[in-house]
C-alpha cells in the first residue's frame, strides 16, 4: 500500500466506534488527550510509510 485509503476499509465500523468510546470511558480530558496521542503514534508506526502518513495528515486537515 503506497496510497492512503479514504474508502471504507473498517471491519465492523459500528463495533470499532463503540470500542473507541469504551476505551475513553472514565478518563479525564487530560487522560483522553494522552490516550489519543499514544493511539496516533501506535497507528502511525503500524502504517510506517511516510507517503501514506503525509496523505493522512493532509486528509485530517481538510475536514
Amino acid at each position: 500500500m503506497t496510497t492512503a485509503t479514504t474508502k471504507p476499509n473498517l471491519d465492523q465500523p459500528d463495533a470499532f466506534y463503540a470500542d473507541l468510546l469504551t476505551a475513553h470511558e472514565g478518563l479525564t480530558k487530560e487522560e483522553s488527550d494522552a490516550f489519543n496521542a499514544r493511539l496516533i503514534l501506535l497507528m502511525a508506526n503500524q502504517i510506517g510509510d511516510r507517503k501514506v502518513l503525509n496523505q493522512l495528515l493532509e486528509a485530517a486537515g481538510s475536514k
Partner: peptide
C-alpha cells in the same frame, strides 16, 4: 507536550517509540 509525553510513556513498554 501531549505528544512528547506520549512518546516517552510508550517508550517504556514499546520499542517502536524509542527512535522518536
Amino acid at each position: 507536550r501531549i505528544f512528547r509525553d506520549a512518546v516517552l510513556d510508550l517508550s517504556e513498554h514499546y520499542e517502536f517509540a524509542r527512535p522518536l
